[in-house]
Computed example of a mutant assay.
Amino acid sequence: MNGWRRLTVVVIVLCAFWELGDCRERDDNLIRMKLGGFRDSHNSAAEIQSLAQFAVQQHNQKQNAFLELSRVLKAKEQVVAGKIYHLTLEVVDAGKNTVYEAKVWVKPWINFKQLQEFKPAPDGPKLGWQTVPTNDPQVLDAANHAIKSIQQRSNSLFPYELLEILLAKIKVIEDYIRFELLLKLRRGNKEENFKVEITKNKEGKFLMNYV
């Protein structure tokens, strides 16, 4: 009987250790997933723009190139020892717009920033209509111009107020940027949605195409 009891105790202890090890393995896997996963970056538009500009400048210095940043198409981040930002950029290369991908490693607590990779996007240029963040500074400028134009055309004594930019798309055409915006506005007690298209020329001037 004593032998059976000792055997039972050993089996119980082994099972407990196995269960503990299994839990630790699952926890470690979960931690690795959290650390290594990709997600959309929630940094401000200005911070992402600064990282994109840094990536282009570093590439130009290393390769003796003359690329110019046009805009950020997409920004994702990966948590490591710090963060690695995966940026999809539209740049001007010898007068032509093309798409590049960049990786920038940032460790803010030691003021460290390093370009890890900069290469043409594997799928080639994607320069048609692109959905962009509604808080992009260029989008906000275009929206404000649209509101002024709508106000001038309405002849209303009540001013239009921007409540929300519901959707923003842009398309680059040679030296022009075309914006297609869906705006939610308020005039007095009335709320309205306006779909507008605006063009920004190389001098930075806006022209309303339609409302």
Rank of each mutant, 00 (worst) to 15 (best):
E25V: 08
E174T: 14
H145G: 02
I84N: 01
V132Y: 05
L35F: 12
L182D: 12
W129P: 03
V139S: 05
D28Y: 10
E101G: 12
I170H: 06
L7A: 14
K169N: 14
L157C: 12
N209R: 03
L182S: 14
A75L: 08
A121Y: 14
W105H: 11
F118M: 09
L182V: 13
A65M: 03
G82I: 00
E164R: 14
W105L: 06
A45T: 11
N135W: 00
Q114R: 09
E174P: 02
N97V: 08
E161P: 06
R26M: 07
D93M: 09
K126E: 13
V196Y: 02
A168S: 07
I177H: 01
D27P: 00
Q152D: 15
Q151W: 02
G95F: 05
F194R: 00
Q53P: 06
K103R: 05
Q53W: 04
W109P: 00
S70Q: 07
T134Q: 04
A81K: 02
K200S: 11
Q114M: 09
V10R: 09
S154D: 10
K200A: 10
F17L: 15
L207P: 02
R71Y: 10
K148A: 07
A143R: 00
L20Q: 10
H86G: 00
A146C: 12
L185W: 04
E101S: 08
Y100N: 02
G37A: 03
I198L: 07
N97K: 09
A16K: 03
Q116E: 07
G36E: 12
V10N: 07
F118V: 09
L14V: 08
E25T: 10
A52H: 04
T88E: 15
N60K: 05
N201P: 10
I198A: 05
A55N: 01
I12D: 03
P120G: 10
L69F: 06
R26H: 11
K148G: 00
K169A: 07
R32F: 13
K107I: 13
F179R: 01
F206A: 05
